[in-house]
Computed example of a mutant assay.
Amino acid sequence: MLDYKNQAKWPNGFGSQQSPIEIKTAQTLKSKEPLDYHVVSDYQLHQEVDDGTTVRLTGEGAARIFNREYHFVQVHFHAPSEHVIDGKHYPLEIHLVHQNDIGQLVVVALLVSAGELDDEKLQQIMTTYENGKTEPVDLNISDWAPWYPVGFHYLGSLTTPPLTEGVEWLVLTNPEFTISDRQIDWFHQHFGDDNRDPQPLNDRQVELYK
């Protein structure tokens, strides 16, 4: 299990393009084109794993991202959010992890706000969860991806060791669902705060799509 209270002790042989970051909208490069992210084959989850740090679900599916084809690999969660937008943390950040045929990674991060009602699919994930176990699951989460994505694009890294760089990030601020305070509390009760601290931006460019 990762110790999020002692992140400085994580293996740190990484470079200068680490994730997550704090994004300041006023300093981004505004794109005139819509964000090219489309689910082309449903995200279907098959297995739910307690990896000690978060709950991770593996499955299959496909997406087109900047006119490139990627396979959906897995989804996992961080509470509160790892990315910070104009000084704001969101209560939950969902990572949809994609990989292409030559191993390149794209993570689509959904920044989810609190609402009055439970999200039904997240509730099914919570109900299936067994501490320390791997369980089968049959769940389609394609509708978590917004039909018209709004958010940011930049080049970064994995946010857990080995902290590999060369990962493309889409950080989306407009998922079309919310989660309840009760569901937020569930993540904190089971995993504590599992968000990596924001890393230096250095000379990277962040693009805004809206």
Rank of each mutant, 00 (worst) to 15 (best):
L57S: 11
L57W: 07
T58M: 13
T58Y: 15
G59N: 02
G59F: 09
E60M: 05
A62C: 00
A63C: 09
R64Q: 12
R64W: 00
I65G: 02
F66M: 11
N67I: 00
R68W: 03
E69C: 07
H71T: 12
F72G: 02
F72E: 01
V73K: 09
V73I: 11
Q74P: 03
Q74L: 09
V75K: 10
H76T: 06
H78C: 01
H78W: 00
H78P: 09
A79F: 04
P80N: 04
S81H: 11
S81R: 03
E82G: 15
H83C: 05
H83A: 00
H83F: 09
V84S: 01
V84Y: 12
I85Y: 05
I85D: 04
I85P: 05
D86Q: 12
K88I: 15
K88V: 15
K88P: 10
H89V: 14
H89L: 14
H89E: 11
H89Y: 14
Y90K: 15
Y90H: 15
P91V: 07
P91Y: 01
P91K: 02
L92Y: 06
L92K: 05
L92W: 01
E93P: 10
E93A: 05
I94F: 02
H95A: 03
H95G: 08
L96T: 13
L96S: 07
L96A: 12
V97M: 08
V97C: 02
V97E: 05
H98C: 06
Q99I: 03
Q99N: 04
Q99C: 09
N100K: 09
N100L: 08
N100Y: 10
N100M: 10
D101I: 10
D101H: 08
D101G: 09
D101Q: 11
I102W: 07
G103L: 07
G103K: 03
Q104V: 13
Q104K: 06
L105G: 03
L105D: 03
V106E: 13
V106Q: 11
V106N: 14
V108C: 08
V108A: 14
V108Q: 06
V108E: 00
L111P: 13
V112A: 04
S113H: 01
S113L: 06
S113V: 08
S113F: 08
A114W: 05
A114R: 04
G115V: 02
E116R: 15
E116S: 14
D118V: 05
D118P: 03
D119N: 11
L122S: 07
L122E: 09
Q123N: 15
Q123G: 15
Q123V: 08
Q124N: 00
I125A: 08
M126I: 07
T127I: 08
T127C: 09
T127P: 04
T128Y: 10
T128F: 06
T128H: 14
Y129A: 14
E130F: 12
N131C: 10
N131H: 14
G132P: 06
